[in-house]
Simulated scan of single mutants.
Amino acid sequence: MGQNNSLYEYLAVSLRKPLESWFLKGEKLQEIRLRIGQPLMIRYDGEEFFLTEQGHGYRVWELEEEKRKKVFYITEEQMQETLSYLSDYSLYAYEEEIKQGFFTVGGGCRIGVCGKAVVENGEVKTIYPVSSLNIRFAHEIKGCSDRILPFLFKGERFLSTLIVSPPLCGKTTILRDCIRNLSNGGSYEREKKPHYFHGKTVGVVDERGEISDFFCGMAQHDLGIQTDVLSQCPKVEGMMMLIRTMAPEIIAVDEIGSEEEMNTMIYGMNCGCSLLATAHSASMEELLKKKAFQKVKEEKMFERYVILSRRNGVGTIEKVYDGDGQEIWESKERK
């Protein structure tokens, strides 16, 4: 069942049969959603399916009244059993993460959590009882960033890059592979000529543990031979720690969005670091409408913007822009 095999064993026993065939299909399984009293749902290759007890999948738009009777509904007992397995019977050990709405398990899989928020003095302390889980799979696809490398260099110099896409379009997967390539060094082809680059020292702040899947002092995903990782650390504090102590040539982070994060990245840039990051948006125009990102363009923090979609599958590269927001490449592929 590939790299997701261990997560299959974390599911309630009664959920394994309907999901078994989908796990066997491998890398295209993106999410499993459990909601008490609602149908078992998965996202597979960009589409949502409700499953029957035998594992047959109905697309969301196919679920008419008669088919609703055939799908598999999640019980409170199945939810509790799955939570126990995922947390190794120690859910309290994940409370610091859960109060942010998620926790991360082996393989870099992030588990989104909803239910009743327990609030004290205006702060969320935990979520209990849990009514919904969103199990998101981390996929390591080596070589998936090769296609964008020719746009990300000027000679030997890496150009600070922001990877932009809506959710579930593969930006974390491509970020992870970019880090590996930059750390190891290698080559790319431009204008039918090979170009070579030396490996760089990359500092990664992995706030949610999805990039590295850090375990027992080691990244479980391949991030290259010159990469230093701060796992489960807030991005702002983590970037400052890396700048002060690890002298990274490149700082890499996932899903930036706050003004404080932008200011810290500007500080890193002024300290001589190149930047590699991702952000949520469907287009360059939508990105620059966000207040925090207006400063990004003004300060010319990034010299390249890579826009992703899932038009031709997860990780479709749509466009590349330069630091002035001018389009320098557009995909000619059509679905």
Score class of each variant (00 low, 15 high):
Ile250Arg: 02
Lys116Ala: 05
Ile250Ala: 08
Glu31Lys: 00
Glu123Lys: 08
Asn270Trp: 01
Met218Cys: 07
Tyr85Leu: 15
His280Pro: 01
Glu255Trp: 09
Ile135Glu: 08
His221Asp: 02
Tyr89Arg: 14
Asp45His: 13
Gly55Ser: 04
Lys171Pro: 03
Leu29Asp: 03
Glu333Leu: 12
Glu31Ile: 07
Pro129Gly: 09
Gly268Asp: 06
Phe49Thr: 02
Glu210Lys: 03
Gln78Cys: 08
Pro39Cys: 08
Ser6Pro: 00
Met262Thr: 11
Asn312Tyr: 11
Tyr85Trp: 14
Pro150His: 08
Met301Trp: 06
Tyr44His: 10
Met265Gly: 09
Gly186Gln: 11
Tyr58Ala: 02
Glu96Leu: 09
Pro39Arg: 05
Leu175Phe: 06
Ser309Lys: 14
Ser87Asn: 09
Lys154Gly: 03
Lys300Phe: 06
Leu223Val: 10
Tyr128Ile: 04
Glu47Gly: 06
Cys273Gly: 09
Ile74Val: 15
Arg136Lys: 11
Val119Thr: 01
Pro166Glu: 04
Gly325Tyr: 12
Tyr92Thr: 12
Leu275Lys: 14
Ala282Leu: 02
Ile225Ala: 12
Lys297Leu: 15
Tyr73Asp: 07
Ile98Asn: 14
Glu31Pro: 02
Leu162Asn: 09
Asp254Ala: 10
Glu65Asn: 02
Cys114Ser: 15
Ser231Asn: 04
Ser21Val: 04
Glu123Trp: 14
Asn312Trp: 05
Tyr44Gly: 03
